[in-house]
């Protein structure tokens, strides 16, 4: 098992090195310092900034520095350009909790609901229940995310309880603390769940339907297993393999996936920090956040492989 993990880690090293090179290259297409100082900067100002942020050093040196920062998880010496005196380490520490406060519950809720609906749909495959659910899923998928966000905010945060002067959900903003969670975070969580439902339900149903056509299902039936046993024991354990992959590949998006929601609802999570950094051309923040994100993505890929091996006995040995 350990050699397996180690092999996966080694395999992903070149991928990560590539991401960093790509990222740094892309961010230097337009000179970041000119971006900050305007089109015709004073040469002395330019040089001063270049030196201060280490951008005068060769690409390779900067590359090693960024890689070192990510590997040691130490971002305390990376200074933000637009938030005076703020370092990326602090920004990361502050923004990670609000991000997770939305994405973790959203992922759990989506997965549970989507898998349940998929099972119901697969159970009644070809019948009206299934057909209705699938039509809803396709129509739901065809509406823009932004429309859900706009109407979600309008109906639940703006209209709901307005008659009685009550407010159940915040129009936007964020306060830390568990007691504040439902007020600020529940609505974004629900919207994000609703948006993901269409895709996930269809995917999980397809997985279930695929499994339901397998020979071992007929064997189980011929053995005298009940329909529920077949569904929840035989099929679900096999279906776990694609399900886990699906969930795992969305894991890294937990950190930045709700960027749109964070921006719209003014929640100071990582997505919004990155968005603002891109808007304000806060070069070091963009570079570091994306680098961290890619690292998380790769780690979760490795974790997926490991989980795979745990669920599927066939993978373990090969």
């Amino acid at each position: 098992m350990w050699t397996f993990i180690l092999r996966r880690l080694l395999y992903n090293v070149p991928v990560y090195l590539g991401i960093l090179a790509l990222l740094m290259g892309a961010l230097r297409v337009n000179d970041p310092i000119s971006g900050k100082l305007g089109k015709n900067p004073d040469p002395s100002d330019y040089l001063a900034l270049e030196q201060r942020y280490g951008l005068d050093q060769p690409f390779a040196v900067q590359y090693v520095k960024l890689l070192g920062d990510v590997v040691t998880l130490d971002f305390t010496d990376v200074e933000s350009w637009t938030n005076d005196g703020l370092f990326v380490g602090e920004m990361l520490a502050e923004s990670i909790v609000p991000s997770l406060a939305i994405t973790v519950p959203a992922l759990c809720l989506t997965s549970v609901l989507a898998i349940s609906i998929a099972i119901i749909s697969a159970f009644f495959r070809g019948r009206p229940v299934d057909k209705t659910l699938m039509v809803l899923a396709v129509v739901g998928m065809s509406v823009s995310f932004l429309v859900y966000v706009i109407f979600g905010q309008y109906w639940f945060a703006y209209l709901l309880g307005r008659g009685s002067g009550l407010s159940y959900f915040a129009i936007g903003g964020y306060e830390s603390g568990l007691a504040n969670w439902p007020y600020y975070c529940l609505l974004p969580v629900l919207i994000s769940t609703f948006v993901a439902m269409g895709y996930d339900t269809r995917f999980y149903r397809a997985v279930m339907v695929e499994e339901s056509g397998r020979d071992y299902i007929t064997t189980a039936k011929a053995k005298g297993a009940t329909k529920t046993k077949i569904m929840f024991v035989h099929m679900l354990k096999n279906a776990m393999i694609p399900i886990i992959t699906r969930i795992m590949t969305t894991l890294p998006f937990l950190v930045m996936g709700s960027l749109l929601l964070e921006v719209y609802f003014n929640i100071p999570g990582m997505g919004r920090v990155l968005y603002k950094a891109i808007q304000e051309q806060d070069f070091p923040v963009v570079q570091t956040f994306v680098a961290i994100f890619a690292a998380l993505f790769i780690l979760s890929n490795i974790l997926t492989d490991v989980l795979y091996a745990l669920v599927d006995p066939r993978v373990r040995l090969s």
Binding site: N12, P14, V15, Y16, G18, I19, L22, L23, A26, L27, V29, N30, G35, K39, P252, F253, M256, G257, L259, L260, L274, Y275, I278, Q281, V286, V290, F293, A294, F297, I298, N301
Partner: peptide, 26 residues
């Protein structure tokens, strides 16, 4: 394979933002 593993390790929305901002001002 290396190329697409690399590109797919950045979520498209972030990739789009980075690229769109890289083009800005040009």
């Amino acid at each position: 394979v290396w190329l697409y593993s690399t590109f797919s390790s950045i979520p498209w929305i972030v990739l789009l933002m980075v690229l769109a901002s890289a083009f800005r001002g040009g």
